[in-house]
Amino acid sequence: MAKNLRKLPSGRWGIAIFILCLALFPLLTVNNPYYINVMVFVGINTIIVVGLNLLMGYAGQISLGHAAFYGIGAYCSGLLTAKYGCSPWLALPAAVALTASVAYLIGLPTLRLKGHYLAMATLGFGMVVYIVLRQLSWLTGDSSGLMGIPGISIGRFKLDTDLKYYFLVWTMAVGVLMLSRNIVNSRIGRALRAVEGSETAARTLGVDTARYKLQVFALSAAYAGLAGFLYAHFMGFIGPSTFGFKFSIELVTMVVVGGMASIWGSVLGAAFLTILPECLRVAEDYDIVIYGLLLMVVMIFMPKGLTRTTVDLLKSRWTASPVSQTNEE
């Protein structure tokens, strides 16, 4: 803890500035619902990516099926509210708990092994969940997806505009960011970094590596469940195609492009890859070519991701200056 004391204030400033920017954003864009809408999706993606980054960057495990947890969260909350008239605030803990426990069950047999077995298991799991969601029409009433998911209200205050929802999403996202930061700086975080560095060494020192990995996996799934909840009630309609393999891969890409083992990297990665396709709309048919090419170029020239490259850049400019500490890893 003592070691982190020096870092914490600057980190707190970082978060404060970040929150200020978020609060000012609607003003900057003249409250245009389109930009707000894009930022809502950035927020939702940030929540999943932060969790996935904890798993990939700190626990050293890849999940190729995180879209499935997103989907389970969305469908759980959507079905409970739209079909059974449940309040969204009751559906939220249900969605989060369900995704976390499903993740726990999937992780239990695979995380005890070394290597990327979790990646393969989650790949299979993700595909199975996607196919099951696709076949759900007897439950959802329509083969295209689930309709009529109600919006969220806090007491009598209805979150019926994009701006109100924007604040809800980002409040949750900032909460998730702070929680994750605390986890990273806590005993669990240190244990996790030990696991990532050398699992054998960590084990020798008495760290129950499998347990920690499992906990982080469940936590990251819970984040995805939360994001699914936010997505479902924002859209009002969910279809299976959102939760397929493609999105799982996009999420992994966001983590790596943003920077592994970096909380801020997750925000940056989610923002970059959510906004990029919107910018590429002008390119029409060429957009996916440019998208693929950019992805390759970013990884070739910045193999450690956007954040690390930025930090290195700052460091080389103000060598040995404490400013570079602002971006913790």
């Binding site: 619902p33 389109y34 999706f41 997806g145 309609f237 195609s241 959102t242």
Partner: peptide, 13 residues
């Protein structure tokens, strides 16, 4: 669906 939603927002606003 997500992309479509963003496109519609862009068209409208």
């Amino acid at each position: 669906e997500t992309k479509c939603r963003m496109a519609v927002k862009k068209l409208i606003y």
